[in-house]
């Protein structure tokens, strides 16, 4: 197991690459999903407001 993580002494170069890749791509995905759900929420609020206005 330790042998696998050491990667012949090059683990310190290899793992940061995989770690950064995972971190960057997950962060970008999460921020994109968050902004989509925020936009959806804003839209539902605006639609409710305009419905109320058209009734009154």
């Amino acid at each position: 197991m330790t042998e696998f993580f050491e990667m012949g002494g090059h683990g310190i170069y290899i793992w940061p690459c995989y770690g950064l890749g995972a971190l960057l791509l997950i962060a970008l995905l999460v921020s994109s999903v968050k902004s989509l759900s925020k936009s959806k929420k804003d839209l539902s609020i605006m639609e409710q407001v305009s419905k109320k206005e058209s009734k009154s």
Binding site: V33, K38, S39, D42
Partner: peptide, 20 residues
């Protein structure tokens, strides 16, 4: 696709706000 959907919905929100 996720980002584009978000942007399309955001532009709808802006249009509704302007109309208001």
């Amino acid at each position: 696709f996720i980002r584009m959907r978000g942007e399309i919905i955001a532009s709808k929100v802006r249009a509704l706000r302007l109309r208001q």
